[in-house]
Design a binder for these strands. Structure first.
Length: 561
RNA sequence: UGCCCCUUGGUGUAACUGGCAACACGCCUGACUCUGGAUCAGGAGAGUCCUGGUUCGAUCCCAGGAGGGGCAACCA
């Protein structure tokens, strides 16, 4: 059912294997993917999703989808829906759909019991005082004036906090651990705060909301999670995680394992920064095809299989690391190559007139959808006529030695069509090439010459008579530098947004066969790249295609050298 | 100047847990080709951050050092 290939080894898999071997948890391997519904999922989340769901799958366990919705200020149902859609799109099925907000009662109970045993107290300092008394990484903090309230007093206060007797910020519940703890996280971490805000699921039922540290590990424990996977920046939080699940009395509690988050060159993978790109109008929305969000990648034409293959290929480790874009692009091409049909589209057209081809004549040529090495079959008819469009880049008046395409006096093959020879270059007053007058060889119909003569180049083309004008959006890297977040503290990452990250080609010409295909059809436009119909902006009178990724282009290297 | 984590070719990972460093991406050659795609064949590229130690033998164990990163939100 799952993949044929053996998953590659990593340190988390080894730990889980040990757990299984020793029966450490006494229950099936159970993981969870715990996003907060305050933004869209991105490629970094995909790594975590693949890890958590993949582990459960491989060890015959289960993986929950848990919405970590403990902050009523930022969360929204629209994000929940987007998250569910994206995880499902990636191809994973959660064992249970869970919400941290479903555990608020249980969490509150635990809070009371911590208070009763003197492990937690109500602090009435304001935010600044709490911060000051926490000390710094260099200096220990010191106990505040409310730290030694009696359990009875604390319990009374806590209940009144819950009852809504106090305004936001009046009190907080804190674990009573150690204000001088070398780990800052353990300096009496906050557990519950007052927030008179409407929760997107619970409405006004609560005015007491748990903080991440209080909610997360306990939610894991409640769900019977065995291994709780999270990213490196939560390493220090592991102490409070363990403290809480133990104080709460869970048997064989889950344990946290941290791994390095994905960092991808030429983009950012942080919900906060992605939100800024959206809000500041650098992109058109969360699903802008330039965004590394799953919604953006989907609209860009990337398949879920490619994303999963990519996630498998990058490995899992505890070393912060950046992944080159080439690794991602390889996964995308590798997947698309084997599954999408080839069609012809001229992105930047220049006209070719075949002077020896009858005006008004149109013939239908057979063209296979797939090359010989892709084990799929299918073909379509492509109309051919006296006037054609070819790619501006495929002609050079004064070509360099290694240029194999059309040039004055030179013969090339029109893919699935005929051999043509350029006889004349027509220019306008400005000296720009407006038309190429060529002759075709009727004997080469279909692309082979009976006399066995060879041509160096094969170019793609579209009939001017029957081709369809369309808009082609050429997407490129979102940023001009590999790591826009590390350009110095005084430089904002948005200054590196690539102004050429989208180029709109509004006079492209595509063969008519694509019109009848599905609204989200993917293609390889021969010789240029992989494309997908844009589901949002497509109109029959104005077709729109998005470039998913270019083809590998060795000519570009030759040219660049 | 505290606590914690990390350090293997350009990049990302691996190495049966002590036996003389492998895979993928990228790069370079060549072959093939009706996509300058794909595929195929070959190649270059690290002696595993440094210094000591243990050992017949260390990427793996120990000590010290250097470099990188995380932590001082009533965010997650």
């Amino acid at each position: 059912m799952s993949s044929e290939t053996t998953p590659r080894n990593n340190f988390i898999r080894e730990l889980v294997e040990d757990d299984v071997a020793t029966g450490r948890f006494g229950r099936p391997v159970t993981t969870r993917f715990p996003p907060e519904p305050n933004g869209f999922l991105h490629i970094g989340h995909a790594k975590s999703i693949c890890l958590n769901f993949g582990l459960a799958e491989d060890f015959a366990g289960r993986c929950n989808l848990r919405l970590d919705d403990t902050n009523p200020f930022t969360e929204d149902m629209k994000y929940v829906e987007a998250i569910k859609r994206d995880v499902a799109w990636l191809g994973f099925t959660w064992a249970a759909e869970c919400y941290a907000s479903d555990y608020f009662d249980k969490l509150y109970e635990i809070a009371e019991s911590l208070v009763k045993t003197g492990k937690a107290y109500v602090d009435s300092q304001n935010e600044e005082e709490i911060r000051e008394n926490r000390g710094t990484v260099m200096e220990p903090g010191k106990p505040g004036p409310y730290r030694d309230r009696t359990p009875e007093e604390n319990l009374d206060l806590l209940r009144r906090m819950k009852a809504g007797e106090f305004p936001d910020g009046a009190h907080v519940l804190r674990a009573k651990i150690d204000l001088a703890h070398p780990n800052m996280i353990m300096r009496d971490p906050l557990l519950l705060r007052i927030r008179h805000a409407s929760h997107y699921r619970l409405g006004d039922e609560w005015c007491l909301y748990p903080l991440y540290d209080f909610a997360h590990g306990l939610s894991d424990a409640i769900e019977g999670i065995t291994r709780s996977l999270c990213t490196l920046e939560f390493k220090d939080n592991r102490d409070i995680y363990e403290w809480l699940v133990n104080e709460a009395g869970f048997e064989r509690p889950p344990t946290q394992i941290e791994f390095a988050r994905l960092e991808l060159d030429y983009t950012v993978v942080s919900k906060r920064k992605l939100l800024r790109l959206v809000n500041e109008g650098h992109v058109s929305g969360w699903d802008d095809p330039r965004m590394p969000t799953l919604a953006g990648l989907r609209r860009r034409g990337v398949t879920p299989e490619a994303i999963r293959a990519f996630c498998d290929s990058i490995g899992v480790a505890r070393k912060p690391a950046r992944t080159e874009l080439a690794t991602f692009e390889h996964a995308v091409r590798n997947d698309l190559n084997m599954r999408v049909p080839r069609v012809m589209c001229v992105v930047d057209p220049i006209k070719v007139v075949l002077t020896n081809y009858a005006a008004g004549q149109v013939e239908e040529l057979d063209a296979s959808y797939y090359p010989h090495d892709v084990p799929l079959t299918g073909s379509r008819k492509v109309p051919f006529s006296r006037e054609l469009w070819i790619e501006r880049e495929d002609f050079m008046e004064d070509p360099p030695k290694k240029f194999f395409r059309l040039a004055p006096g030179r013969e090339v093959r029109l893919r699935y069509g005929f051999f043509i020879t350029c006889q004349e270059v027509v220019k306008n007053d400005a000296g720009e090439i407006v038309e190429l007058r060529c002759t075709y060889d009727p004997a080469t119909r279909g692309g082979d010459s009976p006399d066995g003569r060879k041509v160096q180049g094969t170019i793609h083309w579209v009939s001017a008579a029957r081709g369809v004008t369309c808009e082609v959006r050429l997407y490129d890297k979102l940023f001009t530098v590999p790591d826009p977040e590390a350009q110095g503290d005084d430089v904002d990452f948005t200054t590196f947004v690539n102004p050429d990250s989208i180029r709109v080609m509004s006079h492209a010409k595509v063969e008519p066969s694509v019109l009848g295909d599905a609204p989200d059809a993917r293609y390889q436009f021969e010789r240029t790249g992989y494309f997908v119909k844009d589901v949002a902006d497509w109109r029959d009178e104005r077709p729109v295609f998005n470039r998913t990724v270019t083809l590998r282009d060795t000519w570009a290297k030759v040219k660049g050298a």
